[in-house]
Design a protein around this nucleic acid. Structure first.
Lengths: 322, 322
DNA sequence: GCGGCGAATAAGGGATCGCTTATCCGCCCG
DNA sequence: CGGGCGGATAAGCGATCCCTTATTCGCCGC
């Protein structure tokens, strides 16, 4: 029985899929599968079984989840406690959607470090379900992006921190540019140039794509929002969905222009989510309060220029014990 | 960071010595030392330092102990929970002094299993400090033998279950036999034939030996009380300290006779110790209550004939996760 | 029946674990 | 100052972990 094995099990249980857990951990699917197999053998129970809607817990598995989750948490707490006893800065583990990680998370973290007790901060990219699982297991302290609610066992606390306008952008030379009152149906048959957050099923972009019935082959996932905007500028028909104020530079210099479709710009919110205040770390809520300050709002409105596509590193997931 | 490493650390912290922890775990001293070294490297703190009175905790170590202890406990609980969810019998881990393990623990456990829900019981031999550490870490459920109090952090609850008379026995052909009003000073210069419990510093026998100033070379540790009595019967001067009613068969057939020394027979008690009732497992307290019944008392008074020395297995320590 | 998707299994390799025995080192005590 | 005790270190070895890629299995929808 290894902490790694327990971690794999909990993630499979929470995410409902071995593949999803592997993705969240940044390892291959058989790695998780075999860890799970070892735990199953050791405990003499299947723990999770394949069901129609994903992996479902057995009776034993259902009881094991909270225990394993607590062990993982204590493992992280052990490290944090020792660090703190040595007088080191507390640790703040932030998860963000790829869009936020690209444009505003670094500046936010930097500004917070200057104001607060200079915590040792790491930023990782994750999808909404991954954020939820990581927060519940306390493998991360703060999630930035979609609104998270938590499942039955562990409640999460979300709060909007930024109102955004989602625009559909295209090249000024595109055949979509300048057309007024464009029919949404037309949008299903052009290239959609999205950043990794667009692959998160719970993201507004992904839901939009689903609602419009855009076929998969039309969805091009670029490594960053900046890259997506650059690709849109070169494409004669592609659409890049983007948060308006993040693309302000590209819009101002007219490398891309808004597409005129009913319902756009689409209003949406960035949220900050943590465990409830009595269960989360103090530094998590300090960061959370910081996000509602004018300083933070300013940073979110005037983001650092997008990281060049080539240098944008997608997932910097939480480091564990290996 | 491994559960094994944490376990080693906690035992070193609780027992105050690497060697003692190694003995409690039934492994070599470097095994514990290197596990501790790995944890130190991983966490970047010494955790425990050599002090005049044993290994002393650093600030970080002091904070780590309860966290690590809880992780170990949860590890054991994970296994127990899964077992239980599968409908298996609950687990009862009993620690006993070697004397009790030899004479009465098997019968007690067997009788309890017949009355109660037939738990899956294991019996191990341990010294008093080991019992204390194991109970506090919840690696054992019940300790049988000396009265345990617990240290500051985790309170233990002890209760006497049997009053015993400690006799000094010798061969009827010994030069000590038949002598009346023997001076205690004479006892320091004869062989003392003790069972493994006699090496536990907190045992009455060990304290007696210390009080009388018996030199180490005079103390012969036999693998069981039965073996000690047999050796005493063959020795022309040796003394075997023994609980009177356990040696009743040997006394009745006159293979050994009591030595007449002031203060003997010496009254002492067997205790049962567990965590407080709200922190211990239900089965632990069920066993505890059983020990105060007439059935259990009868078993303790008329023990199963001592296990033949050759078949007595000394330490069957708690199994962990390997 | 046949793809396709997701999980399990196979095979292999590098790292670590966990244990051993033997040795070294620091410290206290006679 | 030498011995002795207890902890740390060295060297080595087998088992396990943990990861990979490739393949197989089971199930569902077409």
């Amino acid at each position: 029985m290894t902490l790694t094995q327990l971690e794999c099990f909990v993630l499979v249980a929470r995410l409902g899929s071995v593949t999803a857990a592997a993705r969240a951990l940044g390892v291959s699917e058989p790695a998780v599968s075999s860890a799970l197999g070892a735990l199953r053998t050791h405990l003499g129970d299947q723990l999770v079984l394949r069901g129609p809607t994903g992996m479902e817990l057995t009776a034993a598995g259902r009881r094991l989840v909270p225990i394993a989750s607590e062990m993982i948490h204590l493992g992280a707490e052990a490290q944090a406690t020792v660090r703190q006893a040595q007088g080191a800065a507390p640790e703040l583990r932030v998860l963000a959607s790829s869009t936020i990680a690209e444009y505003v998370a670094p500046s936010l973290v930097e500004a917070f470090a200057r104001k607060a007790s200079a915590p040792d901060t790491t930023v990782g990219v994750a999808t909404a379900v991954e954020m939820q699982a990581f927060l519940q297991d306390r493998l991360a302290d703060v999630a930035l992006g979609p609104k998270l609610a938590g499942d039955g066992s562990v409640q999460l606390n979300a709060q909007p921190v930024m109102r955004c306008a989602l625009q559909l952008l295209t090249s000024p030379r595109s055949r979509l540019a300048g057309v007024t009152g464009l029919s949404p149906a037309k949008l299903a048959d052009v290239d959609w140039l999205v950043d990794p957050a667009g692959t998160d099923p719970s993201s507004p972009v992904s839901q939009l794509i689903g609602r419009l019935g855009v076929p998969d082959r039309r969805v091009k996932v670029l490594p960053s929002q900046t890259a997506a905007l650059a690709a849109a500028a070169d494409d004669d028909a592609g659409i890049a969905p983007a948060v308006a104020h993040l693309a302000s530079a590209e819009i101002r210099r007219q490398s891309v222009v808004p597409v005129d479709v009913a319902g756009f710009p689409l209003s949406m919110f960035w949220h900050v989510s943590t465990l409830a205040i009595d269960r989360a770390s103090p530094i998590a809520w300090a960061f959370r309060r910081f996000l509602t300050t004018a300083v933070a709002t300013q940073i979110m409105l005037e983001p650092s220029r997008g990281v060049p596509p080539s240098r944008f590193k997608p997932p910097v997931y939480v480091t564990l014990w290996n």
